[in-house]
């Protein structure tokens, strides 16, 4: 109740209200600092590969070949040369913007469709709620390889193959089940009384969805954008199979092409490409990451429908 009426709790996640046991002083400081050290070691293990991704592209091929991978770069500005080389050599430019458009369009269309569906399932008189939910949700259960061949044939039969609209439609479709899942979870946490005032004003179901429910869903929507954009941006397999042309082909297949059989790029350029391909999702995470805990928390507080 309280949670639902606060659309975007800004307080830092986990800092307050966590019911886990408070630090027990009697348990002894030794055990505590041991965990601290353990976490620190793990943190280092998590940073090192990230650092490899950031540091290797700062080296020239010459430098990379002759020094240890642990060595720091002598001229970090080399980064821009390597990034430029990666950008130029694999057609990354147009792939970058194609993926950007798929990520945005796909996430938004999927959230919209998911929200409409979730609204119908949780709020409107409808037969077979559970069936509809399961039907759509089953889309996430199959291993994705399951779709590949028929989808490929479907696309070549219908002229959707290697088109922007074909890619955007597929990415929207594959993002829908998760959006439905989250939006349904969220809507069922909102007590019906909240809509009463709007109903008294004679609002239609459409009006209630847009004027009452959606504004409350800012947190879950932020999380969905984060997840779905990231998923679409990072997709490799479907982009590989359903598209070929510059301007249509998304970024990951283009990146992996850098490593392809006729490639001449050395490790610093390959990793520079990987870095270019990772920056947008990292940026999005830094931007929306704070919603991650709050958005999820909000949808998880509901009990029975």
């Amino acid at each position: 109740m309280e949670a639902a009426s606060v659309p975007t709790p800004r307080r830092a996640p986990g800092s307050a209200g966590a019911p886990a046991p408070r630090r027990s002083r009697s348990a002894g400081a030794i055990a505590f600092s041991a965990t601290k050290v353990g976490v620190l070691v793990m943190a280092v293990a998590w940073i090192v590969p990230l650092a490899l991704l950031a540091v290797t592209p700062m080296k020239s091929f010459e430098e990379y070949s002759s020094t240890s991978q642990w060595a720091l770069p002598s001229d970090p500005l080399q980064l821009f040369d390597n990034m430029k080389q990666a950008w130029d050599s694999a057609g990354l430019g147009s792939a970058f913007f194609a993926s950007l458009s798929y990520g945005l369009v796909g996430a938004l269309v999927a959230i919209l469709c998911g929200a409409l569906g979730a609204y119908a399932i949780t709020r409107l008189p409808l037969k077979g709620r559970f069936f509809w939910f399961l039907l759509v949700f089953s889309g996430t259960l199959f291993p994705f390889q399951m779709y590949l061949i028929p989808l490929f044939q479907l696309y070549t039969d219908t002229n959707l193959y290697d088109t922007w609209i074909g890619m955007a439609m597929f990415y929207s479709a594959i993002a829908v089940p998760f959006c439905l899942f989250v939006m349904r979870g969220f809507f069922s946490t909102i007590p019906p009384e909240i809509e009463d005032a709007a109903k008294l004003d004679g609002a239609s179901s459409w009006g209630i969805l847009w004027r009452v429910l959606m504004p409350l869903a800012r947190g879950p929507i932020a999380v969905l954008i984060l997840f779905q954009f990231t998923w679409i941006w990072n997709d490799f397999m479907f982009g590989l199979v359903l598209s070929t042309s510059d301007g249509v082909r998304p970024i990951m297949p283009a990146l992996v092409g850098l490593q392809g059989a006729s490639s001449t790029a050395g490790p610093p350029v390959v990793l520079a490409g990987a870095l270019i391909g990772s920056l947008p999702t990292i940026a999005l995470f830094l931007l929306l990451g704070r919603y991650l805990l709050s958005g999820l928390t909000l949808t998880a507080t509901g009990k029975d429908e």
């Binding site: 409409l116 569906g117 119908a120 409808l126 039907l135 889309g139 061949i149 439609m169 597929f170 179901s205």
Partner: peptide, 27 residues
């Protein structure tokens, strides 16, 4: 009306996910 709300989502998922999956079972 409620089914109209379901339509876009069911259409997208049906055509792009469920149809190919079912076809794979046949293949």
């Amino acid at each position: 009306t409620p089914y109209l709300y379901l339509l876009p989502m069911v259409l997208l998922v049906g055509v792009f996910l469920i149809y190919p999956a079912v076809k794979t079972v046949w293949v």
